[in-house]
Structures are given as C-alpha cells and as structure tokens.
Nucleic acid binder design. Structure first.
Lengths: 201, 201
DNA sequence: GTCTATAAGGAGATAGAC
DNA sequence: GTCTATCTCCTTATAGAC
C-alpha cells in the first residue's frame, strides 16, 4: 500500500465526515432556520466538537452555503434524469413534487430566502449563485415553453409564474397540513400540486 | 381642569407614543424579521432609549405580539366593513388584496410563522390567539360557503384551501416581484390574485 | 418616566495542549 | 485533527440617578 492509498483513504474519511456534517446541518436548518441554528447545534448533532467543525467549514455562512449547494445539486440532477418526453409542465410538476417530498422528509426548502439577510448572504456566495442561475435558466425555459404551448396561462408575465412556482416549493401550507391535518404525505403533495396549477377555484 | 383631565391627557400622550412604538416595530419587523430585530433597533427608530421602551412593553415577545394583534385588528375591521352583498370568494379576494397592499407598503405579513419558534411564541399569546381564531372562523366559513356554491374547488379539502389562502398572504413571490420586476403595486396585486385563484395553468 | 451604565448570558470563532 | 477552555461581541433586560 503506497502513500497515495493512505492519503486517499484519509481523504475518503474526510469526505464522509463532511457528508455527515451537511446532513446534520440540513436537519437543524430545517427545524430551526438559519438565525436560530448554532454551530453548537450542528457539532452536537454530528457528535464532534465545535473546533473540529470549523476545520471542515470556516464559518457558519460557508457551512449553510454548502448544504444549500448540495440541495441544488440534487435538484439539477433530478431534472437531468427526467424523461425527456415529458412536456414542460410535466417537468415542472415533477420537480415541485420532488421538492415537496424532500421537505416533508425533513430536508430543506428551496428559497430559504424568506429572510432578507439570508438571501443577501447567499447572493454573495458565487458557487451557490452559479447553480441557482443554472437551475433558473432551465425552469424559465420550461415556463416559456409551457406558455407558448398553451399549457400555462400566457396572460401572466413569465416572472410571475416563475416566482410563484419557486414560492410553492417553500409554501408554509405544507407544514401546517403536516402538523394539523391527518393527511398522508402523498395526499399533501397531490393537493399542493393541484392548488399550484389549478388554483383555489 | 380636574385631575381627571390631566390624567386623561397624560394617558393620551402615552397611547400616542405606544402607537409610534408599534409603528416602528412593524417597520423593523417587516425588514429584518423577528430574530434579527433588536430592541435597540426599535428604540432607535422611535427616538427613545431602550429602558423607556421597556416601560411600555415588558419584553420583546410582548412588543411583537402587540404589533401583530394590531395587524389582526386591522384585518377583522376590514372584513367587518365589507359590503355584505359580496359573495364568499369576493370577500376572500378583497381581504387578500388588502393584506398584499399592507405588505407592499411596508407592513407585516400575516403568518409570520415561517419560523417555528415565532409560531410557538405567538401560540402562547392568548390575546393574539383569540383574534386569530376569530379571523379563522370567518375565513373558514367563507371557504365552506364558497365550496358549496361552486365558487371554490369542492374537490379540495377545506383545510388545503384555507392554509393555501393564508400562505398567499405572505407569499415571497411578492417581494421578488417588487425587487426584480418593473411592475407597479397594482399589477403585482392583480397578478398574485389571479395566480391564487386561477393557478398557473 | 426618561436617561446612562451595566449585568447576564448566548453564539461565532480561535488558542493552544495533546 | 481533535479536544477543552476562552475571547469577543452582541442582545435582552434592569439598576439607579435625575
């Protein structure tokens, strides 16, 4: 066994621990939000000390940024894996369903940007913004095609549809239904999709 | 002039200052959110010192609670003043329009409950909860009547419509449109209403 | 009732031993 | 690389003078 294997082994363990840290960050973040999440929370959830945590991520901002980048990677991967015979709206529906299921299983919402300072923090994160823009280009194309094909309301500005779509991925109604109704995950997802595309009427 | 007039005058000045404090709280709250709003922010915005602020409201929780109660009072008053010849859905539309305009003018969203600890704090506030329940009863009645009259999708559970309706009052798409599109307040409101009731289709 | 000054505790980040 | 102990700053809330 050469020194390279040894290094690679160490590297692998390092990556594994980073993955565990990001998992813990995701859990804490989804339950308490950015402002109330402390580095002690994360370190405690992983089972390491705070200085060890700082060896992996040099700040709270970077840690959260990486967790969100991983989420975006998941979304981009999901889109890339979609059956290309789906029409634009079917793709949007599939992605929304994916995002809602991620959230219902304890993951993060897209657009954690309810709070303006978190949004500003993320906009300074170049790596994150690159992925957001990539995702946005694809979704904007879907919306425009959907409108041209008469599958989405062409009377609405594209902006309005796109922002409203993003908003549905983090719709607080999901948490309220999960907490206060007896509905199953599947029912919640099905209903949220109907509300999104068909409205309340 | 009796002592009663003097007291009443003092009392009036006190009420006026409280009003100013609640205005400042509303402004700061809508821009920074609960977690990042500090008592120094509020005191500074009103132009008084922090201990004076604490003479009026004994804690941050109480202060924010009162600001939100005032918002709910505004909503209840708005509903009470609605033309009684409107059908249930027209009432819901009018209230949503009111709520969106309040937000767009720098006011607060209903449901500041994106964060669970703020929601928990508010649920311990009896005065606040009484008003929320009162409002909720009226809105639930509107939704049920709307469904019976075929004005709202009767295939959706009433819960789903009601929670989704609340969610629209604090839809983040509003802020994104305000920030990134060139649309006027009226256009934003009109589009959000369409999206809410007719969906993206 | 209003202020200046301060207590008390929390949270991000780090020093330095092992 | 990991830990214990600590620094520093910020925030809620109050003491005490006027």
């Amino acid at each position: 066994m050469s020194i390279f294997n040894k290094l690679s082994f160490k590297n692998q363990a390092f990556k594994l621990r980073e993955h565990a840290i990001l998992d813990a960050t995701t859990t804490v973040l989804s339950s308490k939000g950015y402002d109330l999440m402390t580095m002690d929370d994360v370190a405690g959830a992983v089972g390491i000390s705070k200085p060890s945590l700082y060896k992996h991520f040099k700040s709270k901002e970077e840690l959260v940024g990486e967790a969100l980048i991983r989420l975006l990677d998941g979304a981009l991967e999901f889109i890339a894996g979609l059956d290309s015979s789906l029409n634009p709206v079917q793709k949007l529906e599939a992605l929304l369903e994916w995002a809602l299921r991620v959230r219902l299983e304890g993951g993060l919402p897209f657009l954690p940007s309810t709070s303006s300072h978190v949004r500003d923090m993320l906009m300074r994160n170049i790596k994150y913004m690159m992925k957001v823009l990539k995702l946005n280009r694809q979704l904007e194309a879907c919306v425009k095609q959907g409108q041209e094909q008469g599958l989405l309301n062409a009377a609405l500005p594209t902006d309005v549809i796109l922002f409203s779509y993003y908003a549905r991925t983090c719709d607080p109604a999901v948490e309220y239904l999960q907490k206060f109704s007896k509905m199953s995950t599947d029912e919640i997802v099905a209903n949220m999709l109907k509300v999104c595309f068909q409205g309340l009427r």
